[in-house]
Amino acid sequence: MPEDREAPATALELVGQHRVELRRDPALDTLELIGRDGKVVLAIEVRETGPVLRFEGAGLTLKAAGELVLDAKKLTLRSDEALSLSTGGDLELVAAGDLRSTARVQTITAELGDVRVEANDDVRIDGERVLVNC
């Protein structure tokens, strides 16, 4: 078989007209879960550098009854429309380096209790107008 041609897939039919396909190639092995509409829902690509998970579809939910940990050298969360973090308990943001926050408008609200700003050095407030108790 010529090297530029993809090897034939090994397929396994699943319940609900879904199927799993395995494609073997010298540089890449791919295991795909294909939905009844023929679109790839989940793909696991196994390369020399390691596996890559690819989820495709309208939505994805990861649910754990216990702890869920994402551990990486670098982590990026990106969203085209909105990003929301929420918890029924406390939220702590900790950075060993600098923390930067940039937005068109920023609002800090304490629904119950104080807002505290502490600094080891100076606290600088720079604005066109600094309004206090307005």
Rank of each mutant, 00 (worst) to 15 (best):
P2Q: 08
E3N: 08
D4V: 11
D4Y: 06
E6V: 14
P8N: 09
T10I: 14
E13Y: 05
Q17Y: 06
R19T: 00
R24I: 06
D25T: 13
L28N: 07
D29I: 02
L33I: 00
D37A: 04
V40R: 04
V41I: 03
I44N: 04
E48H: 13
L53P: 04
R54C: 07
E56A: 11
E56Y: 10
L60N: 06
K63N: 09
K63A: 07
A64W: 12
A64F: 14
L68M: 15
V69E: 14
L70S: 09
K73F: 07
K74E: 13
L75V: 08
D80R: 08
D80T: 10
E81K: 09
L85G: 05
S86V: 08
S86Y: 11
E92D: 15
G97V: 02
D98H: 06
D98N: 05
D98M: 00
T102V: 11
T102F: 03
V105P: 01
Q106M: 05
Q106P: 02
I108P: 07
I108R: 12
A110Q: 11
E118A: 11
A119N: 00
G127D: 08
R129S: 09
L131V: 10
V132W: 05
V132E: 04
N133G: 13
N133D: 13
N133W: 08
